[in-house]
Design a protein around this nucleic acid. Sequence first.
DNA 1: AACTATACCTCGAAGTCCGATGTATGGAGG
DNA 2: CCTCCATACATCGGACTTCGAGGTATAGTT
Lengths: 119, 119
Amino acid sequence: MFGDAKDKALKKLRKDMRSGLYSFLVLTILEREGELHGYAIRKKLEEFSDGRLVPSEGALYDILKSLKKYKLVDNFWAEVGGRPRKYYRLTELGREVLAELKGEIGEIMLILKRMEGLE
Amino acid sequence: MFGDAKDKALKKLRKDMRSGLYSFLVLTILEREGELHGYAIRKKLEEFSDGRLVPSEGALYDILKSLKKYKLVDNFWAEVGGRPRKYYRLTELGREVLAELKGEIGEIMLILKRMEGLE
DNA sequence: AACTATACCTCGAAGTCCGATGTATGGAGG
DNA sequence: CCTCCATACATCGGACTTCGAGGTATAGTT
């Protein structure tokens, strides 16, 4: 019926809904998995979300940069198989912030359910 | 302990998580309530979300502009109490898109629960 | 020799949210 | 009467984000 316009609108709104969660997801993955490099973080996100909540590579590096700026993650270089790899890990601050965010995500989900009348 | 840095980080991440939902929420409110003007949309969002998921005024007008661009809402002027009011309403396309988004929000919530290990 | 996957990164385009600011009306309280 | 507040609309600049495209490089597979 609306074809093209509908696809464009859905693409945009889907993107918006996902993108606000990326920082949270990266922190969550690092908490579960410990130390990972960028590429591996993306693979883990694919695995855990069935490919639904995965930022593009460019976006992921921007997100990691931002998380580092806020001191929620830090990074170190390690030689693996003779090549340098950039590893990221949660800071203590990151762990604290993540704990609070989990609670808030729960609250947001409740509000959404109430609004949609999903229950 | 971390005080300032923690507040800044939380503020940023909270904002990111909320902001992706705004378009969806505005569409949902318009579906429930019919025709509303900008100010009233904000009031309704405050009411339904206990003040948790409410964009600033400036942001709301940008959102409405964007939704109009994607033809998910349209608007008309009406005289109320002798003064012109700009009313917004869902288009047929908006209704279709909203229906699909509801399903996706459900899926995202499931993924989040699985990741957090909340269940 | 070509390709794919792994792994890192930068850049520009387009868009977003917010805070500040501006305009204007109606009603309540002093 | 006059000031303040809630209502109601809107724009602007700043800071930031995501993405897609492109670039660099190595290791293993076909």
